[in-house]
């Protein structure tokens, strides 16, 4: 079976982003870009399913401008068989991304689509669920354990109340949570090997997708700052300070 993996490029999670003074956006010039951490986990899970003999092919998918190819090469170096680059001038919103994925799903006929639960830039947490809806297939979001057998997936999900387990018929969409696995590091020989792996380029306009970018961001602002507090010298002062605030 084939697995499609969403592989988004975002500002690296170690970068402390800043809002431009005029409120027009987040400063991204010269900032380190990396794979969305949850998508790295998605790719790792797909590769493990292939190594177990459950899957035969892993395809990474990226949507973005021409320079996205280097990012997709990282996915190939990590172990994906091939990549699909949907060329779009700008970032697309989740509904549009889901519609793009649906087109690719119709063509590629995967049994599983694995994507990160959210991208750490826009933090929307929508694309996987939206794709499952448009595809009319099951979704298992926030996965921390995935077992695939007999045309079904048993997925443990990290929910607020604890750990929920679902059984879903394939094909299905899975979105990954942090503890599903630890992604492997890319080794130098794999980078060399990745150079000969195919990247298929698809123009966004050629897919016939109705854009779903309905939301308009009118302003970016930094978050409100917390006031610096006081230091106390011992437990007695701490208790007194808490009592003074009416907290004890």
């Amino acid at each position: 079976m084939k697995i499609l993996v969403g592989y988004k490029r975002v500002v690296d999670y170690n970068v402390r982003i800043t809002v431009k003074p005029d409120g027009s956006g987040v400063a991204t010039e010269g900032v380190k870009l990396s794979a969305n951490p949850f998508d790295d986990i998605a790719l790792e899970e797909a590769l493990r399913l292939r190594e177990k003999g459950v899957a035969t092919e892993v395809v990474v998918v990226g949507i973005g401008p021409a320079d996205l190819q280097a990012h997709l090469r990282n996915g190939l170096a990590m172990g994906a068989n091939r990549a699909i680059h949907v060329v779009a001038p700008d970032a697309v919103q989740p509904l549009t991304a889901a519609r793009v994925f649906l087109k690719l799903v119709e063509k590629e006929q995967p049994q599983l689509v694995i994507v990160g639960k959210q991208a750490i830039d826009d933090d929307c947490n929508q694309t996987g669920q939206m794709l499952a809806a448009l595809w009319n297939r099951p979704q298992a979001t926030f996965a921390s354990k995935v077992e695939v057998a007999d045309g079904k997936a048993r997925v443990t999900r990290e929910v607020d109340a604890g750990l929920e387990t679902l059984e879903v018929d394939l094909p299905a969409v899975i979105t990954t949570d942090l503890r599903l696995n630890e992604p492997r590091f890319i080794k130098l020989p794999d980078i060399m090997k990745a150079k000969s792996k195919p990247i298929e380029t698809v123009e966004f306009a050629s897919l016939g997708v109705e854009p779903g970018d309905h939301l308009r961001i009118t302003r970016y602002a930094p978050p409100p700052k917390r006031q610096k507090g006081v230091m106390v010298k011992d437990v007695a002062e701490l208790v007194a300070a808490l009592k003074a605030k009416g907290l004890l």
């Binding site: 919103q93 989740p94 509904l95 889901a98 933090d123 929307c124 947490n125 929508q126 694309t127 996987g128 669920q129 939206m130 794709l131 499952a132 809806a133 448009l134 979704q139 979001t141 926030f142 999900r157 990290e158 929910v159 607020d160 779903g212 970018d213 309905h214 939301l215």
Partner: peptide, 23 residues
């Protein structure tokens, strides 16, 4: 915007063909 709502509402949004404002 709990794991319940995050799981459910985008699926509803896609069925209705609309975007969703998260959080």
């Amino acid at each position: 915007s709990t794991t319940f709502g995050k799981d459910l509402l985008p699926r509803v949004a896609a069925l209705l063909g609309v975007a969703q404002v998260s959080d």
